[in-house]
Simulated scan of single mutants.
Amino acid sequence: MTSTTVAGRLNALGRAELTLFVRNRTAVFIALLMPLLLIFVMRSTLEEIDLGPSGLTAAGASLNGGIGMVLIQVVYTNLVAAYVARREELVLKRLRTGEVSDSEILTGTALPAGLLALVQSVLIVVVGTFAFDLTAPHRPDLLVLGLLLGVVLMTALAAATSAVTRTVQTAQLTTLPFFLVSMLGSGLFVPLEVLPDLAASICELLPMTGVMTLVRAGWLGGVPTGDVVGAVLNALAWTVLAVFAVRRWFRWDPRR
């Protein structure tokens, strides 16, 4: 009997998931075009808002938010539907009968979405730097850290959300609360500095806030060191909670 390596198993799962993703035209449209459309829509809206307290321009705020939308749409929303579909089609159950571990199954399924999100984020930074007259990343290390933590966090939250999602169709409903809360309160497009103090303090605790703070600090700068440390702790804490939820409640069998 021929044994396989972890890298080989992850590569096989990732390639299979990428093939299924490309065949789903709706998922491809949402993942590739929706974040870009929202960037242009939000930029025109932000031009009407006083961003003075944040030190950001409308272009900087909208492109920074575009990276957040990529993480949510490409990783979180797409993976919730993917995990549910594979579960209901008995794919997850069959995979568990082999030598692939549970963590490898979840990671392999998430690989294409995670890599696509990283590539799109890099493109947004490049386009923003040259086409929108923004500065090059101030701290590339913080930007990369924010992106990696964002991919891991969105993957864990997607797996946790799939536990309460019965069908692929209802995934649009179960992902909506996180999408709206993150877009409005995690600094994706509207910086927390322009919100009332109480609202800003509450929004600092949201799952995506730490990731977006790191992305902004890495690319656009203007974030105090204390806030950067708090952002890392925020992202790590939510990741730990999400992983715990997955280990406790993730469903491998169809919900019938």
Rank of each mutant, 00 (worst) to 15 (best):
L95C: 02
L111W: 03
A217G: 02
T167L: 02
G226P: 07
L37Y: 07
L51A: 07
E17S: 14
T135H: 15
R86A: 08
R166H: 04
L134M: 13
V152D: 04
L184H: 09
S3D: 14
Q169K: 11
S201V: 00
A110M: 08
A163M: 06
G210W: 04
L148N: 01
T129N: 04
W249M: 04
N11R: 15
L143F: 08
I49H: 06
T107F: 12
V181R: 10
A200Q: 09
T213F: 02
N64Y: 02
E47F: 03
D102H: 10
L36P: 00
G185M: 13
A85T: 11
R15M: 09
S182R: 02
P35R: 01
M212G: 10
F130T: 06
L134D: 11
V126M: 11
V122D: 03
Y76T: 10
G65R: 04
F178S: 11
T239G: 06
L20Y: 04
P137T: 08
A160Q: 11
L123G: 05
P112Q: 10
R87C: 01
Q120F: 08
L90P: 00
M1L: 13
T2R: 14
M1D: 12
V190Y: 15
N11K: 08
N64K: 14
R96S: 11
Q169V: 09
E17K: 08
G210F: 06
M208V: 06
L92S: 04
P112S: 06
P207A: 13
T45W: 13
W219F: 06
T135C: 02
G52E: 14
A117G: 06
V125G: 04
T174G: 07
G66R: 07
P140S: 10
L123I: 12
I67Q: 07
F132P: 09
T175R: 04
R15P: 00
L95V: 00
F40V: 15
I39N: 10
V228M: 05
L56A: 12
A242R: 06
I30D: 12
E104H: 11
L38I: 05
T175V: 12
T161D: 05
F29Y: 09
E99C: 00
L36W: 12
V181I: 15
G230V: 10
A85S: 14
V181A: 15
L106P: 05
M42F: 12
